[in-house]
Amino acid sequence: MSHPKSDVLVVDNLDVIFALHEAEVRAVNDLSFRLSEGETLAVVGESGSGKSQAFLAIMGLLAKNGRATGKAVLGGVDLLSLSTAGLNQHRGKDIAMIFQDPMTSLNPALRIRSQLSEVLVRHRGFTPEAAFKEVIAMLERVGIPEAARRANAYPHELSGGMRQRVMIAMALLCRPRVLIADEPTTALDVTVQAQMLDLFKSLSTDFGTAMLLITHDLGVVAGVADRMMVMYAGRAVETGPVDDLFYDPRHPYTLGLLTSTPHIDKRQSRLTPITGAPPNLEHLPDGCAFGPRCAFRFDRCSLDRPPLGEFAPGRRKACFYPKPLIGEEDAA
C-alpha cells in the first residue's frame, strides 16, 4: 500500500494545550504524521482522545483557551505560524473541513447558491455567473438531485443528508488538497450514511483530494480509509495501513477497539470490551497512558512511556509488547 507519493500535509510535534481554570490540559501530545496525495487517513479514537482537537488546531479553529505548538506544513507553509488573515488565504482553498453537524457551518439566512458561489468568487476569482454554474455542477457531482432547484433553497429546507452533501460540495469547490472530515456521517441514518461513504470513496479518486477522516466508527474506517491512526489520551498509539491494523493490531488499545465493536455478520455471545474508562487528561498515569486498562502490560509499562516507533515498514506503534497480539491462526 505504501507507494512513494508526495506528502501534502506534514504535521510535526503538534501539541494542543487548553488552559482551564485550575490547570492546563494537554489534549494533543507530540502528534506527528504525514498525509500523501490522494490518500485517505482515518483518525480513530474515543471522546477525549484529542482526535478532533488536533485538526481544529490545524484549521486555526481552537477555542479561545486553547493553543497549539509544533508544525503543520501544507504546500511549504506552516499553518500554525500564520495569523488569522494569513490562514484565511489557505482555509477553504487548500484545506477544508466538514463537521458532524452541517448546520453549524451553513449560514441559515443565505440561500445555498449564494453561500457556495461566494467561496468561488472570493478564493478563485470567478464571476458570479461562472461561479453559479460551477456550484450547480458540484452539487450534481455530490449527488444532489435537481441541483438547480435545490441551490435556491435555504439550509433548513434540506434534509440532514442533503445538508451534508452541500457541505461537501462547498468544501470541494476550491479543489482543496486536504479535506478534513470530522465524524461526517455520525448524525446520519444508516442508509444515508452508506450513500455518503460511497461518495467519499469516489471523491478521493476523482479529485485527488487527500482526506483526513476523523471517526469513532471502525466500520466507516474499514470501508473508506487507506491508512489509519489510532489515538488515545492525546497521543497516536498506532499507525499503519488499514488492513494491517484490522487483521494484525499491535497496540492493545487498537485490539480492544476491534473486539469491542459488534459485527453485524457474526453473532457473538459476549463482546470483549476494554476494561475501565479513559483516563483523566489532567492526571495521566505514569508510563503508558493505556497501561492501567491493558491486558498485556508488564513492569516496564508503568515506568517508561513507550515511544511511537516504526517496527515494520509503514507501521508504527507506541507499545513495549514485542510480539503480535493475535495468534497467527486467528489473524486469518
Binding site: 452508506a194 466500520g219 488499514v242 488492513d243 455478520d265
Partner: peptide, 24 residues
C-alpha cells in the same frame, strides 16, 4: 438496512455490494 451497515472488516467492506437505497 442490513447491507448499509458498515462492517469493521476491510476485506469484507471491499467485497460487499451495498443494496444502495436512493433518496432519504
Amino acid at each position: 438496512l442490513l447491507t448499509a451497515v458498515p462492517v469493521p472488516d476491510p476485506k469484507k467492506a471491499r467485497q460487499r455490494n451495498i443494496d444502495g437505497l436512493t433518496g432519504e
